[in-house]
Design a binder for these strands. Structure first.
Lengths: 225, 225
DNA sequence: CGGACTTAGTGTAAAAAACACACTAAAGTT
DNA sequence: AACTTTAGTGTGTTTTTTACACTAAGTCCG
């Protein structure tokens, strides 16, 4: 039995961060899950996450855990909500600060293969049973993502540095699950003034090449209208 | 020196909830602050809040603290954000889950007088120096409030059970700090389909009486458009 | 080398929503 | 009865959103 050497005058909860990691691959919205090796919920799928170190900022903690699971850094990461129901973890009182992250499709292969039995990408609406209250967290993350598509430029965070307008429209259609009009969509996207032409084109397949665009400020997510 | 009898294998942060409590009084947006009786920041003004009890849900904790400071229950209360910078409290590592609450003007007198040296209402843009990172929390709460005015019916949570359209408009003008056109505002407010006439009128002063309205579902905050 | 195929790219008209704007109504007071 | 004060209402203009179909530029194949 390990020593319990950190002592307080009154009880303290444990604090973790959990990550809802989204990406778009194969024209589907996908989510990163890990298979738990330990009790409780051993063998269940769960959100990646872990305890906040005592001298570590919570945002840094989320970044660290994201990098541990996916190998990526510097992607879009936002605090979602904090969950603190007393019985959400059967071991002890655990309060979790949930974050969600958007990984560009280009970056996702880095880790997906290495640890395949323990980490995998799941299609958003074909998720397995999840441990703890993670199904609830995922649901709220999806809602936040959908809402932000409407009033921010967050969707561009799924894209590589250079992209075509068709790729942007695909992101919207996949997440919102609805077809959009090509001309109206392009008019709208260009009116944002968040992207600019690179001057290059991409040729692929036997058809007219598409102009490439880039974000004017890749790390900025604008709130629109 | 008190006994430190709660022991863990690894260090645990303390967890608090802090409340940003808004109301509208005297045609101004006001905020509830308490004067700290203890170190650190003894004598400074700060957000009301306190430690999460070990078996208490965090939302319940926020409700409890709100009731302790203001005597009100059942008002609009929403989680804002969680703040966890390692040095935000000089004593020990404290992670705080911030909430914000909207108190209808009718309910605020309940406690404001009882404990006047330790608790007071401040005009939003005449705040004193605040303890910890509370100025930052207040700033984000204000931003959230302003944003929600635009896309939800949250403003009605400031109003008593029955109210006039002029009172609704006043709320918007006070928080957004801009005059609005009376006819357009009323058209918009009625189009929400969130309020209905009570059939009563309110007579005050030597002028035409105003129709009274009520929320169709007083506890519901709709997301609009 | 011309025709077929595929995705990229473009404009206009109609409908809906947002905005600007000024007078009448109904009470109380003198 | 006249005056003061706030409540309450409608219309035309501008802006935004939506609906909708063809041409452009490559590749591939016969």
């Amino acid at each position: 039995m390990p020593a319990k050497k950190y002592c307080y005058e009154y009880p303290h909860p444990a604090v973790t961060t959990d990550m809802v990691v989204f990406t778009i691959r194969d024209q589907e919205l996908k989510l990163l899950l890990i298979k738990r090796k330990l009790q409780p919920f051993k063998g269940s799928w769960a959100l990646p996450g872990g305890f906040v170190a005592i001298a570590e900022d919570i945002h840094q903690c989320a970044e660290r855990e994201l990098e541990e699971e996916t190998g990526v850094r510097g992607v879009y990461l936002e605090q979602l909500c904090t969950y603190g129901h007393p019985e959400r973890d059967p071991r002890e009182r655990v309060i979790t600060i949930a974050y969600y992250a958007l990984i560009p499709s280009e970056k996702i292969k880095i880790r997906a293969a290495t640890d395949a039995t323990a980490v995998d990408w799941f299609v958003m609406d074909e998720l397995p049973e999840l441990a703890f209250d993670h199904a609830n967290i995922v649901e709220q993350a999806k809602q936040r993502l959908v809402a932000k598509l409407d009033y921010s430029t967050i969707a561009f965070q799924f894209l590589p540095r250079e992209f075509t307008l068709t790729e942007v429209q695909d992101i919207y259609e996949i997440i919102l699950e609805e077809k959009m009009d090509k001309r109206n969509f392009r008019k709208w996207a260009l009116a944002l003034e968040s992207i600019e032409e690179t001057g290059e084109e991409r040729r692929e397949g036997r058809h007219r090449p598409a102009k490439l665009y880039r974000l004017i400020d890749p790390s900025r997510v604008d709130i629109i209208k």
